[in-house]
Nucleic acid binder design. Structure first.
Lengths: 242, 242
DNA sequence: CAGTGGTCTAGACCACCTC
DNA sequence: AGGTGGTCTAGACCACTGA
């Protein structure tokens, strides 16, 4: 009879967890190089191959990026390559262009039932609400309503949104230390209601994509909930299945 | 000056390609165990570690499945675990149930411009067209129109669809040797037209998801194109972003 | 028990980048 | 030249499965 080992965790996974801590604690900053595999092997007292396997997993999760001959870097939303990682909207013809970000307002409020549930907060908790529109060459395509725990984003205000020239997630990462690493979306087709129709410049009742997203940070904590309406007359939501 | 090596391919990738051939040729059948890592190492004259790395990639691509202590197996759509790999529709409340498949018709015809383009065929090529509905506890949820190259599916007929009790992809794999391993979807919100409304039992103009899918087989060849309409009043299309 | 995949190590060498 | 990640090997041992 052998005892069960319910908590068995291979070495490389323990190493990965230590590396995760280094990320979550801010010891390794987005865009910066982490120590070389050799250094980490010495630091963690394991072989280079084990460090390598731990990093392999994190690269697969898009937490780190390898660059041969240069080093291993912490992934960042500020990198242009990552721009479309979470926005799956593609124009019917031609390549993806960067979309213009038009903030509409930014207010501090209390979470209702739905927001609280999705952000795993108590109902009534303080939240920040951002509304904005994305435009493609002047034409509105996306209308977003974004909910954030105020605890983590208390400094966020309208001016900051207007002055920021890159993606929202890049702002969150740079100014608030909150890196979105994973998200889950629920997609439906709905008829645009009055306010949505006005924001998107379409007639009421037009079918639009309703995209609800929960985004998670390092600790697996939900840090953003957003509800977006996508106009899909000239664009489509692209998805890869495998 | 060093010459560029544009065709450099590491050993484990060459091994992977050989394994791919074994899959494509049918030497390794879906659901069956492939030779052990040791045997493959001997057969391909490389170390076990290199075989392992090749298999790692194929497992990541969901072409193979490892089972510790038992062996490595060719993935199959007949496995219940793979049932929802390509169908991302989830009920608002509760767990995913298997959906009832109701074939409507199956006819042989010629490809129009759009179908030909998506299947990479010449316009006018022979194709098989399947129309069917998926129901959740008697309620129609999905109406699909499926286009297949007749060259690969010439025996397919209505009776076969009616008698098959598992998923379509399981049928394709079992009876036609065509395994779908990857797909790309374009998703839009549209208003249901008359025929769609009738098939789904809804009123004309109701917003529905329009999901167009191209599915690819081993050689990266497009083998199926389908256009589906999804009712998203009680279900949603679930997607993971990372 | 033997056979499978899973982990870990140590060392060699290659490819790429920078100085 | 020296540092980085990338590949490949050989061998030891662990964890799981089934006869």
């Amino acid at each position: 009879m052998k005892p069960p080992s319910p908590t068995f965790s291979p070495l490389y996974r323990q190493i990965r967890d230590l590396a995760m801590q280094a990320l979550a604690s801010g010891e390794w900053q987005p865009g910066q190089a982490i120590p070389s595999e050799q250094e980490l092997a010495v630091r963690f007292q394991v072989s280079q191959g084990t460090v390598r396997k731990a990093i392999d997993e994190m690269v697969a999760d898009k937490l780190l990026v390898r660059r041969q001959g240069k080093g291993t870097f912490v992934a960042t939303h500020s990198d242009p390559h990552a721009l479309f990682r979470f926005l799956r909207l593609t124009p019917d013809s031609g390549e993806r262009r960067a979309l213009e970000n038009i903030p509409l307002d930014c207010l501090h409020a209390r979470a209702g039932q739905e927001v609280a549930r999705n952000l795993e907060l108590e109902p009534g908790s303080a939240v920040v609400i951002v509304r904005r529109v994305l435009r493609d060459q002047g034409v509105p395509i996306v209308a977003d309503e974004i909910f954030l725990p105020e605890e983590l984003f208390n400094d966020l205000d309208f001016a900051m949104l207007q002055n920021w020239k890159s993606s929202l997630y890049s702002l969150f990462e740079t100014r608030f230390g909150q890196r979105m690493i994973h998200a889950r979306e629920k997609i439906r087709a709905v008829a645009a209601d009055r306010p949505a129709a006005e924001a998107l410049g379409i007639s009421e009742g037009t079918p639009v994509l309703l995209v609800e997203r929960i985004a998670y940070s390092y600790a697996g904590r939900p840090v953003e909930w957003r509800r977006g309406l996508y106009l899909t007359s000239g664009h489509y939501y692209q998805n890869e299945l495998s």
